[in-house]
């Protein structure tokens, strides 16, 4: 009897947790199907917000900008992070511990500190804020996460396979390309995805390192809400779409992971 009560209580608890977590998003999603100016008043079902969204050139530009920044910074981070992780892995024991620590400090560091220090650095060297400074900012943000996701793959790898490749006549570059890279590819892939997601929703570093005429989604939303004080209705449709895209990505990644697991079995 007691057992059953605790089980029910546990379920209720989980339910409340999930409700707290998802209520805001659900609310937004529901109200993305009505044209009401403020949330709370339901003025009838309507899909008009969605076409409105794509007619708003400012929003479309912001979306394109965000995607461009996310993909290009993730690409740069992935290349640098892969090279870096491999370099750290094959360093001497003492060097390795030191480098591993140093490369992970930015993860713990407050983002505002990173953003401010980047700004000061650019100003100090007289660099004008442009796309490149923004790109550098996002690379700084995402690089440690790429290293973090590749590192375990390198550690799981049989330490002798690189030597085995050399032993069979492969030069170091060939061994790296044909043996090491395929082995750590899942880590590289998840590092890339992680970079994309981190860059997509970043506000602080973006706000500090961008050219002010260059808007990403986060800076656009923030700009609009702070100017007008209220949430423009189209943003409800936008956030709903972003959430659905993220959900889709998550499902895809999980399916991929499952497939790989079955493959190895």
């Amino acid at each position: 009897m007691v057992k059953q009560t605790t089980r029910i209580l546990a379920r209720v608890f989980v339910g409340i947790m999930l409700l707290i977590m998802y209520a805001p998003i659900l609310l937004l999603m529901v109200f993305s199907f009505t044209e009401a100016k403020v949330i709370g008043s339901w003025t009838g079902f309507s899909l008009d917000l969605y076409p409105d969204l794509f007619r708003n050139t400012e929003i479309v530009t912001a979306v394109v900008n965000t995607v461009v920044v996310a993909l290009s910074s993730a690409a740069v981070s992935t290349v640098l992070g892969t090279v870096g992780a491999i370099g750290i892995h094959y360093s001497g024991r003492r060097m390795k511990t030191a480098l591993e620590g140093v490369s992970q400090i930015p993860i713990m560091n407050a983002e505002i500190v990173t953003a401010l220090s980047l700004t000061i650095l650019f100003v100090y060297f007289g660099v004008r804020f442009n796309f490149l400074t923004l790109l550098i900012g996002h690379v700084v943000l995402t690089l440690p996460f790429v290293v973090l996701s590749i590192n375990p793959k390198l550690q799981q790898m049989d330490p002798n396979i690189y030597e085995a490749a050399l032993d069979l006549g492969a030069r170091p570059a060939h061994a790296l390309r044909r043996i090491i890279l395929p082995e750590i590819m899942p880590g590289i892939f998840s590092g890339f995805l992680l970079s994309v997601t981190l860059s997509l929703d970043d506000y602080i570093i973006t706000a500090f390192t961008r050219d002010t005429s260059f808007a990403t989604l986060s800076t656009y939303v923030y700009g609009v809400t702070s100017k007008k004080g209220t949430l423009p209705p189209t943003l409800r449709a936008l956030t709903t779409l972003i959430f659905l895209v993220a959900l889709l990505l998550l499902i895809l990644m999980n399916l991929r992971g499952k497939k790989r697991e079955e493959g190895t079995r």
Partner: peptide, 20 residues
């Protein structure tokens, strides 16, 4: 001489086969 230029080959203790 680097290993890739030596006419010797090694069988490793834990095989070190290429899993992929």
């Amino acid at each position: 001489l680097p290993p890739y230029e030596r006419p010797v080959n090694t069988v490793f203790q834990k095989y070190a086969l290429f899993p992929h």
